[in-house]
């Protein structure tokens, strides 16, 4: 649940902005210099795309309380829409493709959000699976989406904005970072706006929200639309900056669950949470594979790795739900507070 906003004095309010600014400074200026190719390709690029997807899902599930199990469908819609806009609309700049892809995902999101007007809870969660299966089926079935390529796997176009090419790991990283930063800022503003308050009102008590005049149906559809837009753009980043290929297979049910896990582990109804959760989910398999091959040697083959990753992920989810239901964010805040208190004591 969201952290209480406390009455803070002006200097503290500055501090509130200090951390993100420092972090961004570091991400823009220092990491590109010191980062290795491996850091960008294996960690930061998937991290950024998944974080953004987590931000998108958190708006829908964390803030507006509508559980979705079909996020990967919107990633796929975004990726394929951007690819096709780029392919079929002559002279449309890349940014235009990405924005239009977001709108395409938002439109599909509204369609699959319509059941939320009648269904709640588990019924809605299950109905969002319809999006997952339908979209994946359509993208596989109709080869037109993949430009009639025989394998269904297509190369993402080169990234370029206003004549500047974003090829190479560092440039793709900077591109992704910029998109993620802008949309995250958007999400921050959104959740503290009247629309954001309406989201939480609908989540916490839908009946009361309706009675006091919160436009419940509109609020739900807006949540689906914005969430799908952001997830759609995340899909573009995933395909264009990280994988550099576009294929339906990568956007399966496991991916949907992965994004759900990101916000559970990171913290529901927290924008920061999506980044925390994504970091853990991207990094932990890498650590696990290093650790496994170090401890078990050849016994730790790819099959064993995959299965133990599943187990670890499952255990993590259960542990977080039991021990830290507000996610890594609340754990982080607690540790920070304690550290500050200890420092002050000295």
């Amino acid at each position: 649940m969201p952290v209480a906003t406390l009455e803070v004095s002006a200097p503290l309010r500055m501090l509130h902005w200090l951390y993100p600014v420092l972090l961004l400074g570091c991400a823009y200026l220092i990491i590109p210099i010191i980062g290795t190719n491996y850091l960008f390709e294996a960690i930061l690029l998937p991290f950024l795309a998944l974080s953004l997807a987590g931000v998108g899902l958190n708006i829908l599930t964390g803030y507006a309380g509508q559980v979705s199990l079909g996020s990967a469908a919107f990633l796929a819609v975004g990726a394929f829409a951007a690819y096709n806009f780029n392919l079929r609309v002559e002279g449309l700049p890349l940014i235009g493709c990405i924005v239009l892809a977001g709108f395409a995902a938002a439109a599909i999101g509204i369609v699959f959000g319509l059941p939320s007007l009648r269904l709640k809870g588990f019924y809605l969660a299950v109905s969002t699976l319809a999006a997952q299966f339908f979209v994946q089926w359509a993208l596989t079935k109709f080869n037109w989406f993949s430009d009639n390529s025989a394998s269904g796997v297509i190369d993402a176009p080169l990234l370029s904005v206003a004549g500047v090419a974003f090829n190479g790991a560092v440039r793709r990283y900077l591109f992704s970072l910029t998109v993620v930063t802008l949309l995250t800022l958007f999400a921050y503003r959104l959740v503290s706006s009247q629309t954001g308050r309406n989201f939480i009102a609908v989540r916490d008590n839908e009946a009361a929200a309706r009675i006091i005049g919160v436009p419940v149906l509109k609020t739900k559809l807006v949540a689906f639309a914005i969430s799908s837009f952001i997830i759609g753009v995340a899909g573009v980043l995933w395909a264009f900056t990280y994988l550099r290929t576009v294929e339906p297979a990568g956007f399966n049910l496991d991916r949907s669950f992965q994004i759900l896990f990101i916000i559970i582990i990171g913290g529901l109804a927290s924008i920061r949470g999506a980044f925390f959760g994504a970091a853990l989910l991207v990094v932990s398999p890498l650590i696990l594979s290093r650790l496994g091959s170090f401890l078990l040697g050849d016994l730790f083959n790819s099959g064993v790795l995959e299965m133990s990753q599943r187990i670890v992920l499952g255990v993590l989810i259960i542990l977080f739900l039991i021990l830290e239901p507000d996610g890594l964010v609340s754990l982080w805040d607690r540790i920070r507070k304690r550290t500050i208190a200890r420092l002050k004591k000295r």
Binding site: M1, P2, A4, T5, Q194, R197, N198, I200, A201, R203, D204, N205, A208, A209, I212, G213, V214, P215, A269
Partner: peptide
Amino acid sequence: LFKGLSVVDNVISGRAY
């Protein structure tokens, strides 16, 4: 009440209409 909103935000939601 909306448990996840602050008191002032709860009150403000009374003007949502």
